[in-house]
Amino acid sequence: MLFKTINLLLPVLLPSWRFFKTVAASPRVEVRVTIDGHTSDWVCSHPEPDHIGLGAMIARLFWNPQRNNKLYMVSLSERLAEAETKHSTQELARLVGATLSGREGAFEYRLLFLQRDGKKIIRFLEYQSPLLPIGKGAA
């Protein structure tokens, strides 16, 4: 416990401040549901809106929980790509599952990463969850 606390605190008290050193591979979380034996196509778990007006941007300075949850999912995905941990997989399952509440069945989620490869942007699969029951652990 003490060792872990020190490990968590050191990067906070001695921060590196290397924001956007490089634009690394970028995660996308996709989900598909299985209900009554029928499995849907993969869709984006937290799709971005087409457009956000200036008024909404200003309002989001004060109240932005969904966006911050999405940024947390980016962090979790990057941590999971680095080293799979129970915490990352469970938290992602919880946050993805929260978008499906009210349905009965199961779901899977997967992490795709987008990356520049020369002049092209390539996508690759980094992780796919097992089938999980909808509703379990939803926020």
Partner: peptide, 20 residues
């Protein structure tokens, strides 16, 4: 510190680091 444990690191990257 409790939240660092809860989220297994910063929840919101640099902003959590600056807060702490």
């Amino acid at each position: 510190i409790a939240l660092l444990h809860r989220f297994d690191g910063p929840y919101n990257g640099g902003s959590d680091k600056m807060t702490m």
